[in-house]
Amino acid sequence: MLAKRIIPCLDVSAGRVVKGINFVGLRDAGDPVEIAKRYDEQGADEITFLDITASSDDRDIILHVVEQVADQVFIPLTVGGGVRTVEDVRRLLNAGADKVSINTAAVNNPQVVRDASRKVGSQCIVVAIDAKQTAPGKWEVFTHGGRNNTGLDAIEWAQRVEALGAGEILLTSMDRDGTRIGFDLGLTRAVSDAVRIPVIASGGVGSLEHLAEGVSTGRADAVLAASIFHFGEHTVREAKELMRARGIEVRL
């Protein structure tokens, strides 16, 4: 059976991993290659890099990061953050990314999803959806870290990007992001049930139980988390052992 995936997410700024990476024995807590290798050793199924570089002058640095990681870590790599054009997608793939995640640009110009998936294949295109609950059973798509409401219904938007050629959806609850109280399981389930492509749940993980819930109750195909792994509280292996104990198929 296909395993449910666990995906550590690393924020990268100007070529360095930022936000507490706290592994025992790490020489350089900011080195993306060293950290990616560590997650690979722990059994991570994929790794996602989110480029949060503020200065546009430094944007090309992510390409070098991707090259270095892809040359040494042989699991799938997804890269997102600031991806606007098909050319941006192509350059990241050529650097060694397996998938590229498009967020705001997809909202501003949905055609970019279609053009990119036609050019490089749906399997390489992830659309990131940041959603907030606006009424019971209703979520809307936000951009700019949850500040701008696009007015788009999250479920309809997920179905639309699937039709445009997205191969996967990275779904983040902006209500839960950073709270450590667990995924928005209602949102996750509603979107996962509404599309035929895989959905990655994100936002709010504070315990290993939360990861299992994202799959069992939220029906996510994969779960993404950052701080729970970065601060050395838990390893990916521990997460998988707990998921397996809950009857979830994992790669161990």
Binding site: M1, L2, A3, K4, R5, D45, S122, Q123, G167, E168, D193, V195, R196, I197, P198, V199, R219, D221, A222, R251
Partner: peptide, 15 residues
């Protein structure tokens, strides 16, 4: 799937 759930396409991940 064996548990009655819908399997996604593309088949993506570790099998």
């Amino acid at each position: 799937g064996p548990d009655g759930s819908r399997l996604k396409v593309p088949h993506m991940g570790w099998n």
